[in-house]
């Protein structure tokens, strides 16, 4: 199957001032994104996330390498590609004096829509994003959450096959961020649209993304599905066994799937390759010793650990 995004050796630098040195922002980035995926590009500020997404979204020319999005070259076939993609970015910005409807109609026309088709599309998006009651409100009077919803609505005006989401919940309160995330997942499920999302919110990436890539200093340092990354990095899920008295007399390192363990008074902390698979066997081993457990705490490995492991 043809990947939705295929990039090879992408490099980009920006000159500081007229004669200043070139600051390299992206170095030899390779990336492959499967169709229908929600792919997260993670990294700290200045890692090159926005530069990468901008190159793939035809807003910036790469210095080196080549990239194909939906099978089209982002440089040579940019015009054809633009019709099939769209972008929603953090801190939504549209013309201040245009109403919600005006903005959607304006962007709809930019994609060649007009007449009945445009009206129907705008109405559908107004309903979908709960913007109908705000249709006559100008952009400058919208709340931050509504602006972000409008940004997402605008990003769907051309029924894109691939959507770029540049930190889509940045600056939103918890509730609104949650709503936007739900919307992203729903869109992906219902329409099958491929999404490339940049974020430095690891929790968000964990919730949304099927695959992630880590950028640091303009280089892609790791890429894959979260469980695969976990395995590749030797990271494991956490299992804490808190005993009523002293810990069970077991050789914990020999238990199935245990990567390492620490003992602290009546508590044993284990790191397992897959907690969901290993837990029954471990509990059984404890049960056989006749030691009584007071508490069992399971904490699957999270993206933050993976991120920390990769970036440090």
């Amino acid at each position: 199957m043809q990947p939705a995004i295929f990039a090879q050796g992408i490099g980009k630098g920006f000159r500081t001032g007229l004669w200043g040195p070139v600051k390299q922002v992206l170095r030899q980035v390779d990336l492959t994104v499967a169709p229908g995926a929600i792919f997260g590009v993670l990294g700290p500020n200045g890692a090159g996330k926005t530069t990468l997404i901008s190159i793939l979204a035809t807003l910036l020319l790469p210095d080196t390498g080549r990239a194909e999005v939906l099978g089209l070259d982002v440089v040579r076939q940019a015009a054809a590609l633009k019709a099939r993609i769209n972008l929603a970015a953090s801190g939504a910005h549209f013309l201040w004096c245009m109403t919600v409807t005006d903005s959607l109609r304006f962007y709809g026309r930019l994609y060649g829509l007009g007449g009945r088709a445009l009206t129907d599309k705008v109405e559908k998006l107004l309903d979908l994003f709960g913007l109908a009651e705000h249709r006559t409100v100008t952009f400058e009077r919208l709340s931050t959450g509504l602006k972000q919803r409008l940004a997402l609505a605008k990003a769907l005006i051309n029924d894109p096959e691939l959507l770029f989401l540049d930190e889509p919940t940045s600056g939103l309160d918890q509730e609104m961020a949650h709503l936007i995330r739900q919307e992203i997942v729903r869109l992906n499920r219902e329409t099958g649209v491929t999404m490339l999302l940049t974020t430095h919110n690891l929790r968000e990436a964990e919730m949304l993304c099927t695959e992630v890539a880590f950028l640091k200093g303009g280089q892609l340092i790791s890429e894959g599905r979260i469980p695969d990354l976990q395995r590749r990095l030797g990271l494991g899920d956490h299992l804490s066994l808190v005993f009523q008295d002293s810990p069970a007399p077991l050789d914990y390192d020999r238990l199935p799937g245990v990567l390492r363990h620490t003992v602290q008074e009546s508590r044993v902390d284990l790191v397992l390759d897959r907690v969901d698979e290993r837990l029954p066997a471990i509990l059984e081993a404890v049960y056989v010793t006749g030691t009584k457990l007071a508490k069992v705490v399971v904490k699957p490995v999270d993206l933050e650990e993976i991120y920390h492991e990769i970036t440090h």
Binding site: K82, N86, Y111
Partner: peptide, 8 residues
């Protein structure tokens, strides 16, 4: 960028 990501 929203104007120039569109096919105009």
């Amino acid at each position: 960028k929203h104007e120039f990501i569109a096919p105009v």
